[in-house]
Structure formats: structure tokens, C-alpha cells
Nucleic acid binder design. Structure first.
Length: 477
DNA sequence: AAAAAAC
């Protein structure tokens, strides 16, 4: 058990200048217009400067990237890479190429006055420039696992003098799909090193696995684990699967929608939905893993610049991607891994802003919705009022992400499979289902898009639910 | 069964 100080005890009046960071970094922070660190930054930065291993959990959009980038730059400022060593001082691993590129961008921003050498090592890009970038040794490598292993196998990159490794979206990096690659990479790192794991979600099974790689980590959680950020107005529409496309067009045509991400469960689905939205005259493009890397980059750039206002994506864009002013996230299909819901909707309401998340749920998805509600500890509905689960008022790190029905030791993916469609029949239809072309439903759609009033109301109800439990207190385990 | 990640 470890109790972390409450927000008020610990974070009161803390400024960036109080955190022990080098002056070259404080200047860059100030140039970006920041003066006050977020709670995760207040906790993580000193711990990382002290050389601790860290498991850091904080809600989406609360500055996790800067929380590790600033102290790692500080440490590199003290200890630059040995020239010609084919090594890197710090290694950062991310689950998608786009996220790796975005982290590198953040490093360039905060490192602008100290000019660290940075190499982005990802698939889909030419290996030649990557090889040249690391040939003389590099301060920081930001990588996706596959290409890094390639370069390691061919002797282009060595990790035997790397002193710090960071797994961003750490729970996904240690999940089934990535674990073998991560183990192989970790095996090549020195035993004496600093290791850090960050995410907005951290299921217990994953956290247990993490201890293979961590040495007496500082466990830092500045919010109840897996709780979406409060500024997201979360709504669910129960719709027939055949009605989804029409409902989506009506939703996205609304004037409140400035910039939206629509998530689908499959790559083909993303293409189909995007095509349908295009035919309806909307400004949209799809991004998923079957597109070429250049297409992926172009599409994300167009969305970032505002040239495209609706991004249709698979879970390739669920984690970490930071685009300003995404007003709406629509789950066209619910994710079957409940943690993905928290990450998807976290693409909106970043850096203190508000956002709306609308999930379209058909009868085959009721079980997935129930898993999501269990994870976040609230029931979702069409009004956007979160109804807390009184039976489990405190979702701690120890239980968050562990579905109640899952057997001990059961693999996470098989759990997700078990819930697919299974509970659809068991759960009676409680809510009316919206159909396109129905006047009453369309009036409802306008409400779905969310107003400031809705958000105020919702926030009050959330605050109410939180009081009396562990409101304001940061708890881990 | 899906998505991501190496050619």
C-alpha cells in the first residue's frame, strides 16, 4: 500500500521552477507559455531526476509526455552520449509510428535550447537515414519495437550503454501483441538502468508483468485509474446497426462539430465509413494500419492542419495522439478491449478543454458497453449524466481493468472474446433506439452533440458522485 | 477475431 499526497497537500503553488529542472529547459517551457506543471508532472519530474524507476498513471491529455521528456532532457544535459558508440542514452518505445514521431516532436520543442540528438526509428520509413542518424551515437531514440529490433539484429543499434528506457502507453507495450518484442529489447539493456512506464490505464495483470522490468518503482497515480477525464461529456446512443451510418452523418453534420475522430473496430470499416461520409459531403479521410506510411502521415497532417475535419480511424489513433481542439469523438463501433474506450475518448478534452464523446451501441455491443462501464465505474446514457456504480465507489489501481467476470490468470484477449456478443441476449432492451429520418430522433441528435449547459450539469453530477469516496486524493493500490 | 508492429 502506498498513499500519495492529496492534490492540495502536494501540488499547491508548485511552479516549473520548483522542480529542479535545468535552466535550458525552464526557458523552453516558458517559451511554450507554461508556468504551472500538471499534477503528473509535479510527481514524475522529481522522481525521474532522482533516478527512480516509475509507473506513472494519469488521465488523458494531462501532460504525461512533458512529464517524462523534461526530466530525460535534464539528465541527458548532464550525460551526453559517447560519440561513435552506436548507442543511445535514452530509449523511448511507443505502440504506433505516429505516436513515436509525435514524442520526437515534443523532444525537439523542449530541447530547443540544448539540441539533443534524436533519432526516430520506425517501420514504414527508409532504413538508410535511420542508420546514418544513429551511426555516431545518439542521445535519444524514439522507436516502435519492430524496426528497432531490426536495427539491433543488424548491429546498427546497440543498447548496452543505455541508461534510461521509457515505455509510453506502457500497458499496451506489455500486452500480448507487444510483449515478446519488448522482452527481447529489454534483454539487451543493462540491468542497471532507469525504467519508466506511463499510461492512462494500467490493468492489474499488466502491472504485475511490469515488475519483471522495474526496480522498486515509484508508483504515481494522480487520479483514479481508468477514469476518463471529467471534462468529456460522455454519451451513449443505442442504435440498430443498420441505422449507424445515417445517425453518424446526422451527428457529424451538426454545427457544433469542429473537428472529430470517428473510431471503427476494423480497417475495412474505417474505409467504408470514411467513403460514406465523403459521399455525404463531409471533409474526411481514414487512417489505419493497411495504409502506406506516407498516406498515414499525410492524413494525420491534414487533420492536424484542419484541412480535413473528420478523421476516421481504427485504434491506431486511440492512444497518445494529440491534436488540438478535437471537439468530438464518436465511437462508431465500441472497442472490445475496454481500456481502448478510455484512450479513444481521451483524444478530446485535452489540455484543459472540453469535449464530447458519443458512442453508438447496437445490440451486439451491449456486453462491450457493460465492460466499459465496469472499467470506468459509471453507467453511460444518452443524457451524458454519468451514473456512478455505488457497489464499487473506489476503483483503485489494484482492481481497475480487471473485469469482474474474468477468471484469474485468464488472458486479456480471451476475456474480450468471451464478452463479444455473449451478453447481448441476457441484457434486455432498456432504451429506445434512434432511427435516421425520424424527426424526434433527429431533434435528439442535436442534443447529443452537447452544449455547455450539458457539460455543466454533467460535471456537477460527477463531482457529487466523487465526493465521499476518494475525491481529490491520489490513490495507487 | 482485431489492431498495432518488420521486410
Amino acid at each position: 500500500m502506498r498513499r500519495v499526497a492529496t492534490t492540495n497537500e502536494r501540488f499547491h503553488l508548485k511552479q516549473f521552477n520548483d522542480l529542479g529542472l535545468a535552466e535550458v529547459l525552464l526557458r523552453a517551457v516558458s517559451a511554450e507559455g507554461y508556468t504551472t506543471p500538471t499534477p503528473i508532472q509535479v510527481e514524475v519530474i522529481p522522481a525521474m531526476l532522482a533516478g527512480r524507476d516509475i509507473v506513472g498513471i494519469a488521465q488523458t491529455g494531462t501532460g504525461k509526455t512533458a512529464a517524462f521528456v523534461l526530466p530525460l532532457l535534464h539528465n541527458i544535459n548532464q550525460q551526453r552520449v559517447v560519440p561513435g558508440s552506436k548507442c543511445c542514452t535514452t530509449l523511448i518505445l511507443a505502440p504506433t509510428r505516429e505516436l513515436a514521431a509525435q514524442i520526437a516532436e515534443s523532444i525537439r520543442t523542449y530541447g530547443r535550447f540544448m539540441r539533443p540528438s534524436v533519432a526516430v526509428i520506425i517501420g514504414g520509413a527508409k532504413p538508410g537515414p535511420q542508420i546514418r542518424a544513429v551511426a555516431g551515437g545518439v542521445d535519444i531514440i524514439v522507436a516502435t519495437p519492430g524496426r528497432l529490433l531490426d536495427h539491433m539484429a543488424s548491429g546498427v543499434i546497440r543498447l548496452d550503454r543505455t541508461t534510461t528506457v521509457i515505455l509510453d502507453e506502457g500497458d499496451q507495450m506489455l500486452d500480448l501483441g507487444f510483449m515478446p518484442a519488448i522482452r527481447r529489447i529489454m534483454a539487451k539493456l543493462p540491468a542497471k538502468r532507469q525504467t519508466m512506464l506511463l499510461s492512462a490505464t494500467m490493468p492489474k495483470q499488466i502491472r504485475d508483468l511490469a515488475h519483471d522490468f522495474l526496480n522498486n518503482p515509484a508508483e504515481i497515480a494522480v487520479a483514479q485509474v481508468a477514469r476518463p477525464i471529467e471534462r468529456i461529456n460522455q454519451k451513449v446512443m443505442h442504435v440498430d446497426s443498420t441505422a449507424k451510418r445515417g445517425v453518424l452523418v446526422d451527428l457529424l453534420g451538426g454545427p457544433q462539430v469542429e473537428r472529430a475522430i470517428v473510431f471503427t473496430r476494423t480497417k475495412r470499416g474505417a474505409d467504408k465509413v470514411s467513403l460514406h461520409l465523403q459521399k455525404a459531403g463531409l471533409s474526411t479521410d481514414a487512417i489505419h494500419g493497411n495504409k502506406s506510411q506516407s498516406q498515414r502521415e499525410r492524413t494525420l497532417a491534414a487533420f492536424r492542419s484542419g484541412r480535413v475535419t473528420i478523421l476516421v480511424a481504427t485504434d491506431i489513433a486511440a492512444r497518445g495522439i494529440d491534436v488540438d481542439d478535437v471537439s468530438h469523438v464518436v465511437n462508431y463501433e465500441l472497442p472490445n478491449v475496454p481500456e481502448a474506450y478510455v484512450h479513444r475518448i481521451g483524444r478530446t478534452a485535452r489540455a484543459g478543454k472540453n469535449g464530447v464523446a458519443i458512442s453508438l451501441c447496437d445490440h451486439t455491443e451491449r456486453g462491450m458497453l457493460r465492460d466499459i462501464e465496469r472499467l470506468i465505474g459509471c453507467s453511460l446514457n444518452a443524457s451524458g449524466d454519468l451514473v456512478p456504480h455505488v457497489s464499487m465507489p473506489q476503483r483503485s489501481a489494484a482492481t481497475a481493468g480487471e473485469p469482474t467476470g474474468a477468471k484469474t490468470g485468464q488472458k486479456r484477449n480471451s476475456h474480450a472474446r468471451n464478452h463479444r456478443g455473449k451478453s447481448a441476449a441476457a441484457e434486455p432492451t432498456r432504451r429506445s433506439e434512434a432511427k435516421p429520418g425520424n424527426a424526434a430522433a433527429n431533434a435528439g441528435l442535436t442534443r447529443m452533440l452537447g452544449t455547455a449547459g450539458d457539460k455543466q450539469k454533467r460535471r456537477r453530477s460527477f463531482a457529487k458522485s466523487a465526493s465521499g469516496s476518494s475525491h481529490g486524493r491520489a490513490v495507487f493500490q
